[in-house]
Design a protein around this nucleic acid. Structure first.
Lengths: 140, 140
DNA sequence: GTCCTGATTAGACAGAGTCCAGAGCTTCGT
DNA sequence: ACGAAGCTCTGGACTCTGTCTAATCAGGAC
């Protein structure tokens, strides 16, 4: 995502470019995810979308998030056993995860090098490498 | 865990060393986790334990798994949004995750080096670094 | 307007995990 | 041996995240 203002019109365009029919609800959901440059969970997005304007159902939020995932418009981050976070940043990157607060912070992947990985099992291909650095406030 | 036969007697000793009262149920649960050198989910463990001998309740399995986690007897692996896997291997290591089959494979951490990580946010300490290599069968 | 297709909806449902109040074991003192 | 105290275990109710379904709705083509 290059830096740009996320207006609803822009987002409609982005959706169209990915082959997603930009309906009112989808635009609102995209707006909720992208304007807030953070990692949100499905229920946060549901709450955000329903704060303003017309009601959007839980089913639509989940459907839409899965659609966005499929079209690689967003990524999912699995760090908490109880819920998935959705990440508007699709550039290669990793995460700090604050286990006290649940806060996620991006780590740009450009400077990261991982060496010593064993060869993949036969006939397998890498789909992605996720690095999660779990951190905690030092004062234990 | 050094290589050793996991008899119920050994396991009782292991639990005691960690300050865990080795009750019948806890030993059976430990046995299920350690004899099977794989990554099991809570429901698999529940099924394994109830295959043989006296019934153990779901609540006890969850309580015990959390107790083992707390006492650092096992680790949890969070890769699948729908369930947690419990890992009998507490040595530093990472994982291959086969997204087709759900299969988890250990990667010894001894040879792995990660360079280029940014400094931790102020006042934070690292709790652990998890690397998950998501893999998939090459023939798509 | 009418059709057709795809999107949305409410609510039922499923599965993982937690909570709680009661019952069961152990241990210990008497 | 008895009773009290303190863990531990249990079934079942409950919560929460996420999915499914059947019905409704919106919007474009004609």
């Amino acid at each position: 995502m290059p830096e740009m203002k996320f207006t609803r019109d822009n987002l409609a365009e982005v959706l169209r470019n990915r082959g997603i029919n930009p309906t009112h609800q989808r635009i609102e959901i995209a707006y909720a995810i992208f304007s807030r440059c953070e990692h949100s969970s499905a229920d946060q997005i549901l709450a955000l979308v329903n704060d303003r304007a017309s009601e959007t159902s839980k089913a639509t939020v989940y459907n839409t998030l899965n659609l966005f995932l499929e079209k690689k418009l967003i990524r999912e981050v699995i760090v908490d056993p109880s819920k998935v976070f959705y990440d508007p940043n699709t550039d290669p990157h990793h995460h700090f995860y604050n286990t006290d607060t649940g806060e996620l912070t991006d780590i740009d992947a450009r400077d990261i090098r991982v060496t010593g990985l064993p060869p993949l099992p036969h006939g397998m291909a890498t789909e992605g490498v996720d690095i999660i650095v779990r951190i905690r406030s030092k004062a234990a």
